[in-house]
């Protein structure tokens, strides 16, 4: 196991979260807007080919935060464009990110079947 890589994932992932936390606390941005900003910025950086360097450096520290989700969408679109042209711009993004999206929808549905919301006890 590559412990150095795990440490880098910790630091980069944590740092991305700190930036978002500062945005939440210092500006009036709601969490939904911050998620949108992160995914959009990730897709733009991914499209420019810059986000790849962060992924090479920190692995899951770069792919697990939502910027990584945006990067995955953009990267998928670009590589699909290379293989199948304009249609690829539309199919590539979701195809690359389908695992996470499908899992979230499916597990979300299952969770709603088996569980009920409860009040925050705190």
């Amino acid at each position: 196991m590559d412990w150095y890589m795990i440490l880098k994932a910790f630091i980069v992932g944590g740092a991305l979260c700190i930036i978002a936390q500062i945005l939440i606390d210092k500006t009036k941005l709601t969490p939904a807007r911050i998620l949108v900003a992160y995914v959009t910025i990730g897709a733009i950086l991914g499209g420019l080919g810059w986000y790849k360097h962060l992924v090479d450096f920190a692995g899951c520290g770069a792919t697990v935060p939502l910027t990584g989700f945006g990067n995955l969408l953009a990267k998928g679109a670009v590589s699909e464009v290379q293989s199948s042209g304009l249609v690829g711009a539309f199919t590539g993004g979701i195809k690359a990110a389908s695992g996470g999206i499908a899992a979230a929808i499916f597990f979300g549905y299952i969770a709603s079947l088996i569980s009920k919301p409860k009040i925050k006890k705190q």
Partner: peptide, 18 residues
């Protein structure tokens, strides 16, 4: 009611927000 008000005015109860 806390829960019905949260649902109508804010977020789902199980959303992990501060």
């Amino acid at each position: 009611h806390f829960c019905s008000a949260e649902k109508q005015f804010r977020f789902p109860l199980e959303l992990g927000n501060q």
